[in-house]
Deep mutational scan, measured.
Amino acid sequence: MQRVNMIMAESPGLITICLLGYLLSAECTVFLDHENANKILNRPKRYNSGKLEEFVQGNLERECMEEKCSFEEAREVFENTERTTEFWKQYVDGDQCESNPCLNGGSCKDDINSYECWCPFGFEGKNCELDVTCNIKNGRCEQFCKNSADNKVVCSCTEGYRLAENQKSCEPAVPFPCGRVSVSQTSKLTRAETVFPDVDYVNSTEAETILDNITQSTQSFNDFTRVVGGEDAKPGQFPWQVVLNGKVDAFCGGSIVNEKWIVTAAHCVETGVKITVVAGEHNIEETEHTEQKRNVIRIIPHHNYNAAINKYNHDIALLELDEPLVLNSYVTPICIADKEYTNIFLKFGSGYVSGWGRVFHKGRSALVLQYLRVPLVDRATCLRSTKFTIYNNMFCAGFHEGGRDSCQGDSGGPHVTEVEGTSFLTGIISWGEECAMKGKYGIYTKVSRYVNWIKEKTKLT
């Protein structure tokens, strides 16, 4: 034993070699072989497995989906700052455009905790909710729209109204504003409101030439003092309507412009014939205590009207009353817009006519005020429907199939267009061939041609 100890002390290297040989010859039971080890760690190889990531292109799944990435790591994937920024906006807080917040056709661009709407022409605001041009839906104005110097929408209202708090709607500024039905039992019968379409306001006024200088022999019209197929109006439903009495009662109609003036057809009036105007009328054979009678003290036909040349060209006249009318729910003026808007309103496509005229061709006159909704007829169809001249200051309205029309005794009465609950004068009943005849239409004086003249002559002093 002493000898062994001496050998170990003198030859430590020998001992180490012996131990190493023993270990190498022993069977290893701690580690699995290569094949079995792979069965336990069965993990798919990654895209760049075996390579240094710093030297390969980034992978979106590896960089940002398996674990949260930084902007720089995302930049490695896209290799483009702009594309990385677009991805980053949604990656950080989701897609803010998912709810489609942009209105009126706006395009949404996502941002971090926010979004941006790219608005089409005519709109602005956070969600493109603000109209900035009158060309689109009248700028959301209830009545009139004008573009300011910086191309912003400025709404306005006709006389007797003021802008509401929203700067879009119009509200009454006087007790009985024009064009409004205020009798409670008839307010439910107000005709369907007309909503502004998209309009090209630059070209809204037709490029028409008034044929002022045409000389033409007097034409022989049949029954051209021209509501057939209409309905009984309720008291106060058309408070701007008046009836004219002269040699015979209810020979023509008219509309209240203001307390002192009536507008009617020029062919209705004769110099030297006494005319009485009755406002607030409903049943011409009954006294309903809503009527107001006034005498006409002055007749002003349009300066281009000449019955000797043509009885229905420039067929418009103004009547001055001896005493002002007292405005109330049964006696209310009709609204008159400017030339541009009167023309736009007419193009809405349908209007209402009213009167006490004959209820059928050569038949009896109506006792109760009649009204009828009539569609506008395109000019080409209008011209083809008659052998008589249709001037540019006239328009056609009615039904091709016949059966409904204005008729004798309705002449001078109103053709009105309702705009968001307020009625505007767009025409004056003038003439036609018979009444409600198939293929024939009622012919009306186009008020847009005469609004400046009306307003100039009827100013209240």
Rank of each mutant, 00 (worst) to 15 (best):
H289T: 12
S148M: 10
W261Y: 07
S49T: 14
G355V: 11
K347W: 04
E54F: 06
L14I: 12
K446C: 05
N113S: 06
C396M: 02
C97A: 02
V174M: 08
W88T: 15
Y312M: 08
Q216E: 10
G229K: 10
E320T: 00
I136R: 14
N80I: 04
V451K: 03
K126W: 08
E401M: 09
P414R: 01
L41D: 09
A192N: 11
D338Q: 05
F238M: 10
N135Q: 09
C407V: 06
R226Y: 14
K39Y: 05
D405A: 05
C18Y: 04
L32Q: 14
A308V: 11
Q167M: 10
L211W: 13
A207K: 11
K274W: 00
D405H: 14
A164F: 03
R226L: 08
S365H: 11
N48R: 07
Y371K: 08
Y312T: 03
K39S: 12
C141P: 00
A397I: 02
Y391L: 11
E86M: 15
N42H: 13
S430V: 13
T84P: 14
K311V: 07
S204R: 11
V273M: 03
G236L: 05
K440W: 03
V374Y: 03
N48G: 05
C268D: 00
N306C: 04
N222Y: 11
D338R: 05
K146C: 04
H289W: 11
D249I: 00
K89T: 08
K438A: 07
K146R: 12
C382H: 02
T389S: 07
D223N: 12
L163Q: 03
R43Y: 03
G106A: 07
V374E: 01
Y441H: 06
R358G: 14
L383A: 15
P375L: 08
R3K: 08
C178M: 00
G432Y: 10
L372C: 11
K247M: 05
T287D: 13
E76C: 04
T16F: 14
M65E: 13
R358D: 13
Y352R: 05
A26T: 12
E67N: 12
C145E: 02
E73F: 04
K89S: 09
S411W: 14
E124S: 15
F144Y: 08
M394L: 09
I275S: 03
E433W: 05
S184D: 13
V359S: 15
R180K: 13
E61M: 07
G230D: 05
G432V: 07
F360M: 13
H289R: 07
E171Q: 13
A250H: 11
E86G: 15
T461H: 15
N313V: 09
Q2H: 06
V273P: 02
H267L: 02
E323G: 03
Q143D: 00
G272P: 03
N222L: 09
N310C: 05
T342M: 03
G236T: 05
L327H: 03
I275N: 03
E285N: 07
H415F: 15
H314C: 03
I210N: 05
R384K: 11
C268H: 00
W240T: 01
I275C: 03
G21T: 15
E10Q: 07
D200Y: 07
A380M: 08
K455Y: 05
D232A: 10
P197E: 07
K45D: 08
F176M: 05
E76S: 07
C128A: 02
V195Y: 11
S182W: 09
Q185P: 14
I336F: 05
E53Q: 06
I17R: 02
D93W: 05
P177H: 02
T381C: 06
W453N: 00
T386R: 09
